[in-house]
Simulated assay, not measured.
Amino acid sequence: MALSPALRELQRDLESEANALSKIQKDISKNHQVRKQYIVQLGENELVLKELDLLKEDANVYKLIGPVLVKQDLAEARANVNKRIEYITAELKRLEGILRDFENKQTSKKESIMKLQQKIQGAQAGKTKA
């Protein structure tokens, strides 16, 4: 039994939408992985900041640059860590916005796929009755 051109077109559309949905789901997965890394970095930097806050103002602070420990001013170290925390927080907010967009697109694609499936089922049901 040959498929009608309209039914073939619907199935092509369905396949295209399914591929698009798969790509969106991969993007969501990547987003989750990146966010997880930033969350770990944020925790580490907050811990470093707490440790720096425990130090006295005249304490020696060293920064690891490659294989060398370089002496650093405590205020400068705090400022650097604060900047890193601000950057990571901004990146997390940006990634959350992107994730919301992906989730909206995913929902839209799922609805589109369901409508296409219903059209195909309707076309097939109409054909079997004939």
Rank of each mutant, 00 (worst) to 15 (best):
H32R: 12
I28H: 02
S29P: 04
N82T: 10
K50D: 14
K36N: 11
V48C: 04
P67Q: 10
Q37W: 06
I65L: 09
V40N: 04
Q41V: 01
N104W: 06
Q72M: 11
K105F: 01
L42N: 03
I39L: 05
I24W: 02
R78D: 05
E76Y: 13
E57G: 00
A77T: 10
R78F: 04
V70P: 03
E46C: 05
Q33Y: 00
K105L: 10
E46M: 09
I98S: 07
V40M: 02
P67C: 05
Q41K: 12
D58S: 02
S29M: 13
D53N: 12
L47V: 00
N80C: 13
I98N: 05
V81I: 06
K105N: 10
D101S: 11
E76K: 15
E96T: 12
R35E: 02
N31W: 01
K50A: 14
R94A: 13
K50E: 15
K63C: 07
L42T: 03
R94N: 14
K63Q: 12
V34I: 14
K30E: 00
Y62L: 09
E96P: 01
K26C: 06
Q25D: 12
A77S: 15
L64S: 13
H32G: 00
E57F: 03
Q33E: 09
Y62R: 11
N80E: 15
E51G: 00
R94D: 13
Q37G: 09
A75E: 14
A59D: 14
E76V: 15
N45P: 01
L55H: 03
I85Y: 03
A90C: 04
I98L: 10
G66K: 02
Q33R: 08
E96I: 01
Q33M: 00
P67I: 05
F102R: 02
S29W: 14
V40S: 06
G43A: 06
Q37A: 12
E57Y: 03
N104M: 09
N104A: 11
N104T: 09
H32E: 14
Y87L: 08
K71Y: 11
D53I: 02
D73N: 15
D27F: 01
Q33N: 09
A75K: 14
L69I: 06
N104V: 06
E76G: 13
K105P: 03
Q41A: 11
K105R: 15
F102D: 00
I88F: 01
K83G: 08
G97L: 10
A79Q: 15
N82W: 01
E51Y: 02
N45Q: 07
K105I: 05
L52Y: 00
K71A: 15
Q37V: 09
S22H: 14
N60S: 12
I65N: 08
D27M: 06
A75Q: 13
L49K: 07
Q37H: 12
D58Q: 00
R100V: 07
E46L: 07
